[in-house]
Nucleic acid binder design. Structure first.
Lengths: 213, 213
DNA sequence: TAGATAATTGACCGTCGGTCGAATAAGTAG
DNA sequence: CTACTTATTCGACCGACGGTCAATTATCTA
C-alpha cells in the first residue's frame, strides 16, 4: 500500500469517526447529554480501541469535529462572496452566514446544535473556535472597509475579536434568555454598537435585526 | 439542640467545605488542574461521605463557592458606593471594583483565580455568574443614570448584559491574548463602545484604561 | 440512663476515558 | 504461493472519579 492510499484510507476512517461523533453531538435528546467514547465507537460500528488508533483522546475528537464544521462553514462563506461588490457587502454576507447558521432551526448543523446543546465543554470550545476562525476574516474585511471608507477603526483586529465575541455571547442560550423579543432588542443594540464603534453609516447594520430574506 | 444552633452548626460545616474547595480552586498548580471530591474532603479534614451530607453533588459545591465569592464581592461594592455623589460615579466604582479584581495579581481572590484557571467548567460558570449577578446592578445604575441625564439607552437591561458580557470576555485569558498592549487597546475600544452606545460624555469611560490609583 | 436523632465515615459501586496485548488484515519480498 | 513484516482492529481490563450506603459515633431529649 503506497503512502497516498494509506492517507486516503486513514482520512476515510477518521471521517467515519468524526461523522459518528458529530451525529451524536447534534442529536439533542435530553437524557443523553454526555457523549462517551463507547457511544462514538458503537455508533461508528467500530471497536473502542480503533478510536484511539486514530485519535489521542476524546477531547481531540471533539475538537476535530468542531474544527471541521467551522472550516466547512467558512469555506461556504468564501464561496458566497464572489458576487459581493463592496467590502461592506462582504461584511454583511459574513454576518448573514453566521446568523443564518445560528438562528435557523437547522439541527443538521453542528454549529447551531452546539449553541443549543447543554454540554458546557462543547459550548465553550465552540465559542473559542468561532472567535479564532471568524475574527481574522472579519479583521481583514475591516481593514479592507477602511480603505474604501465604509468603516473606520483604529484597531481592526481587536475590533473584530470583540465583535465576534459579542455575537457569540449574544446568541448564547446558556447566558441569556433567547425569546424573540429579547434577541431582537439585543441585535438592535448590537447593530447600534457596531455602527458607532466602526463609524459606519447610520443604519448600515440594521440588516442584523431585519428578517433574513 | 434548638433549630438555630443546628443551622449555625451546619452553616459552619458548609463553610469549612466551601473554604476547602475555594482554597483548592485558587491554588493554580499546573499539574493538579482538576479538583476531586476526595481532595476537597481531605483538604477539609473530613470524610468524603460528610461532603454528601451537606451537598447534593460536586457541582453544587463549585456553584456555591462561586456564588459565595460573587456575593461577597458585590457586598463589598455596595459598601463603597456610599460616598459616590452621582450615578456615574457609582458606575465608575462598579467597573473599578470589577477591574481591580480582574487585573490585580491577587490570587487570594477566587474571581481572579477563576479567570486565570485552566478549568473550562469553572471559567464558564464564573462567566454566567458574573453576568447574572453584576448585570442587574449595572442595569439599575443605567436606569438611574438615564434620569439624571448622564447616559441614554433604550433597553437598560440588555445594555447591561452586553456590557458585562463584553468585559468578561475581554479579560478572558482563554479567549484572547492578555498582553498589556492588547488589553489596553481592547479596553480603549470598550470605553469607546460604552461611550457611544450609552451616549455618555466623550471620554467619560476613559478611566477604564487609565491606571488604577 | 436509655432511646432517638443527627452527623460521620470509608469501603464499595458504576461509569468512563484510556491502555494493552492478542488477533487479524494487508502488504511485501523471494 | 509462502513467509514475514507491518498496519489495523478489538474488547477485556485498568485506574480514577463522582456518588452511595450501612454501620458507627456524637449529640440531644425525656
Amino acid at each position: 500500500m503506497n503512502e497516498k492510499n494509506i492517507n486516503e484510507k486513514n482520512k476515510n476512517k477518521i471521517d467515519i469517526i468524526l461523522n459518528s461523533a458529530e451525529e451524536l453531538m447534534c442529536s439533542m435528546e435530553e437524557p443523553n447529554r454526555d457523549i462517551t467514547v463507547d457511544m462514538i465507537a458503537k455508533n461508528a460500528g467500530i471497536g473502542k480501541g480503533s478510536i484511539y488508533y486514530y485519535f489521542e483522546s476524546k477531547d481531540e475528537i471533539i475538537d476535530a469535529v468542531i474544527e471541521r464544521s467551522y472550516s466547512a462553514a467558512i469555506q461556504e462563506y468564501f464561496s458566497t462572496i464572489n458576487n459581493c461588490e463592496t467590502t461592506f457587502d462582504k461584511i454583511k454576507q459574513l454576518f448573514r452566514s453566521i446568523l443564518k447558521e445560528e438562528l435557523l432551526d437547522n439541527s443538521k448543523n453542528i454549529i447551531l446544535s452546539l449553541h443549543v446543546h447543554e454540554d458546557i465543554m462543547l459550548h465553550y470550545k465552540m465559542m473559542m473556535t468561532s472567535i479564532r476562525t471568524i475574527s481574522p476574516i472579519l479583521s481583514q474585511l475591516l481593514i479592507e472597509g477602511q480603505k474604501d471608507g465604509s468603516i473606520h477603526t483604529d484597531s481592526p483586529q481587536e475590533s473584530a475579536e470583540m465583535i465576534v465575541a459579542m455575537l457569540t455571547f449574544l446568541l448564547n442560550k446558556n447566558f441569556f434568555s433567547t425569546d424573540t423579543e429579547s434577541i431582537y432588542r439585543k441585535l438592535k443594540l448590537y447593530a447600534r454598537v457596531l455602527e458607532t464603534s466602526l463609524q459606519a453609516e447610520p443604519g448600515s447594520f440594521d440588516f442584523l435585526f431585519m428578517p433574513i430574506e
